[in-house]
Design a protein around this nucleic acid. Structure first.
Lengths: 95, 95
DNA sequence: TAACCCGCAACGATATACGTTACACTAAAG
DNA sequence: CTTTAGTGTAACGTATATCGTTGCGGGTTA
């Protein structure tokens, strides 16, 4: 069981992509082809990274879309697992 | 570049979980705590596997939620990559 | 025939991604 | 001090997605 809160991918994006290149949010949003608000929401953890956005990031920053989606998945999964005790689910397979 | 269409996770779910246990859709849906329609949509490729659903599957079938979300991610990513040429994105990092 | 299972259409509630516009705050430059 | 650039974010609209309920037609089986 992994027990530490995975960072929101937006934080990583800012620290690893925008800051090293000295990019402003406005500049990066324009280059990515999205609105400033859309990028800002991601950077501040108010929106997730969609598959389409992951592809945009891969094109702009020469990375893999998979790595971005993977981070998003880990983040979503961690939050979903936190509430798993509230789900009433019967076991269907033998342990 | 991976070039083969990844299967929809719903197919895998049916083949690897429902059929081996001889479960009907109705039974499985009840055990998972979702409506028959919800599960049917997933099995027939009309809905994706959400993080919450992945946790339900992990509890019912003694698997990892990550494996289900990973399959969903590969599926979504493949479809997003297919249209990446339509995205107007500027490169921001040196190759 | 009757009981059960299935896919699916229709409708609503809720959430997310994305856009535009507008406002207030900050920091830097004139 | 005034102007400007950058930022966060609220409001509002649109499109799409998950998930629920209800109901219907078709298939299988007892």
């Amino acid at each position: 069981m992994k027990m530490h809160n995975p960072p929101h991918p937006g934080e990583v994006l800012r620290k690893l992509c925008l800051e090293p290149l000295g990019l402003t949010v406005t500049e990066a949003a324009k280059a990515l082809g999205v609105s400033r608000k859309t990028l800002s929401s991601i950077l501040n953890g108010r929106a997730g990274i969609s598959p389409k956005m992951a592809v945009r990031l891969s094109l702009a920053f020469n990375t893999t879309a998979e790595s971005w989606l993977n981070q998003q998945m880990q983040y979503d999964l961690w939050h979903a697992e936190r509430n798993r005790k509230r789900l009433r689910v019967q076991k269907l397979s033998a342990a």
